[in-house]
Each structure stands twice: as structure tokens, then as C-alpha cells.
């Protein structure tokens, strides 16, 4: 913590950055984002296993994008979002200062157990950072390991009808608050398709048609891009298991394109590129 606070003070004092985004305590076993411009506020910074928020999402906010340089405290899983944003030309590398935190795990949103995403994390040590804070941590699995999710395997055993009924019930609870979109570091469209009203592409009513359309569009726009931070599911005020959709699509991307988003900033994402030797006729 000392090292983090010292680095934050240095960056803000020397005016190397205009804004620093980190975590502060929000009571026992809770942390929340802290956005500071004044070096004196750096003493409020904390980093612990309750630091769940993916702060990278703030880098997309128009008022923050307009600043000349911003520092962000990021765990390896969060940095994966930065990698995707860089490869999609949404961030200018020189305009962000990444304070990478080594991290063994964070807790589940209810604070009772290790977060499920940490069990298959491959980036306990930040893979892209301007400074790394914290002692190196042994990775539990190698970069090459192909991760299979038990919940998806279970889900795929269901019949079509069971799946339909499951999602019908879950999505009927969506209140269309768009917390999933707003918190997602990769939902950066200046105008989301659901906000178009002439024509109205997506039904904005919170009815079955509207809710299916919205949630499918959201998930599909993240296919091959989602970095598994789990923020959408964590913030959902209706407790909809959105990661079930996202993780299914991650597995598709792995199977079809041998692709996992957010590890290599130089690599071309499969859905934004094409190769002459592609198997599919239509794309050549």
C-alpha cells in the first residue's frame, strides 16, 4: 500500500498525470473507486481482495478521455481490458499510466469466498504496466491452458426448451438500467445501438422481446472481446447471470479462432481482421 500511495503522490505532484483512478475503502470488506487529482488525497488509496471494480471502464468516459494523461490502478484481469481497447484503437498508450498490481485473487461480490474468475486467472502478474506494485505471485495455470467452465458444461446439458425457459425467466427480470453496459470497459460506443430511435433498432421496452434483443446484442458485441472481468454480472441489480452468456462466447472464440482476448496488444482480434487462407468462402 505504501508503495502505491508513494507512486500516486509522485505522479500527481510532478503533474505526470491529471487524474489518478484507484480504490478506496468503502467500509469493512468493501472497496470502491477513488478518482483523485490532488496528491494529498492519495493517502485514501487502498488495494486489497475487495477491490473488485474494473477501473479501466473510467478511461472511456468522455470527460476523462479529454484529459492529457490518466493513471489507473489495474489488476492483471483489468489490464486485459486495456489491451483490447489498445488493439481497437480506443486508447492512446502514451496517455495512460498503468499502475499494475500483482494480485492472487479478489473475493466474490458478497465477500464470502474467492471470486470464481480467479481460479483460472492467467495474469496474477500484470502483463502490461508502467510500474508493477506488489511481490511477484506464482501463476496457478499456464497461458496455454484451455479453460473449460463447469457451469457452461452443465448448462449445455439442458435441452433447447430448458435453455429457452431459463433465459426467458432470467431476462424477464432485466429492468433495462444498462448498468451492464455502463460498467463494461469494452462497451465504449458513443451511441449505443439501443439509444438509436430513428429508426429504433432495439425495442427499448422491458418486455420479453426487448429484453432478449438487448441482452443478445450486448453479449454478441462482446464476443471475442470480453475479458471476463465479470463486472456486468456484479453490477446487475436484477442478479442476472450474464457471465454465463459471456463465458459461452469466450469458449466459442477459443474453439473457433484459438483466441483469448486481452493478452497480446500486438495480436489482431479475430472479428476485426481476415486472412486469405480463411476456411470460410464468404470472407475471402
Amino acid at each position: 500500500m505504501k508503495e502505491l500511495i508513494a507512486k500516486a503522490k509522485e505522479l500527481l505532484m510532478n503533474k505526470e498525470v491529471d487524474l489518478l483512478i484507484g480504490y478506496q475503502s468503502a467500509g469493512e470488506k468493501k472497496a470502491k473507486p477513488l478518482l483523485i487529482k490532488n496528491p494529498d488525497d492519495a493517502d485514501k488509496l487502498v488495494f486489497n481482495e475487495y477491490c473488485l471494480s474494473n477501473l479501466v471502464t473510467y478511461l472511456n468516459r468522455p470527460d476523462i478521455k479529454a484529459l492529457s494523461k490518466v493513471a489507473v490502478v489495474a489488476k492483471g484481469c483489468d489490464i486485459r481490458a486495456i489491451v483490447v481497447l489498445l488493439s481497437e484503437n480506443q486508447l492512446v498508450r502514451e496517455k495512460i499510466f498503468i499502475i499494475g498490481m500483482t494480485c492472487d485473487h479478489v473475493m466474490s461480490p458478497d465477500g464470502t469466498e474467492e471470486n470464481i474468475k480467479c481460479s483460472y486467472c492467467k495474469v496474477r502478474n500484470p502483463h502490461l504496466a508502467d510500474v508493477v506494485i506488489g511481490a511477484p505471485i506464482d501463476e496457478r495455470i499456464s497461458k496455454e491452458t484451455v479453460v473449460r467452465h463447469e457451469d457452461i458444461e452443465e448448462f449445455n446439458k439442458k435441452t433447447k426448451e430448458e435453455k429457452w425457459n431459463f433465459w426467458k425467466e432470467e431476462l424477464s427480470q432485466c429492468i433495462r438500467c444498462y448498468a451492464c453496459r455502463q460498467v463494461c470497459p469494452l462497451c465504449y460506443c458513443e451511441r449505443c445501438i439501443v439509444d438509436f430511435n430513428n429508426p429504433q433498432w432495439i425495442d427499448t421496452r422491458s418486455n420479453p422481446r426487448g429484453n432478449f434483443a438487448w441482452n443478445i446484442v450486448r453479449a454478441l458485441h462482446l464476443s471475442g472481446r470480453c475479458i471476463d472481468c465479470g463486472e456486468c454480472e456484479r453490477v446487475c441489480p436484477a442478479n442476472i447471470p450474464l457471465m454465463l452468456l459471456n463465458r459461452s462466447l469466450q469458449e466459442e472464440a477459443k474453439d473457433k479462432f484459438d483466441w483469448e482476448a486481452g493478452f497480446d496488444p500486438e495480436a489482431q482480434p479475430p472479428l476485426t481482421t481476415f486472412r486469405k487462407e480463411d476456411d470460410e468462402e464468404f470472407i475471402r
Binding site: 429492468i175 438500467c177 444498462y178 448498468a179 455502463q182 427499448t204 421496452r205 453490477v235
Partner: peptide, 19 residues
Amino acid sequence: LSCAACTFVCPTCHCFDIT
């Protein structure tokens, strides 16, 4: 982050849109 979670769970927020 500009979502509507706070307003939608609020007992008194009442704004609506017509489509």
C-alpha cells in the same frame, strides 16, 4: 458511470419515455 440502477430501484424516481 451513468447507468439507471439508482433511479430504477428508487421508490420516487418516476421519469418515463414514450415509444
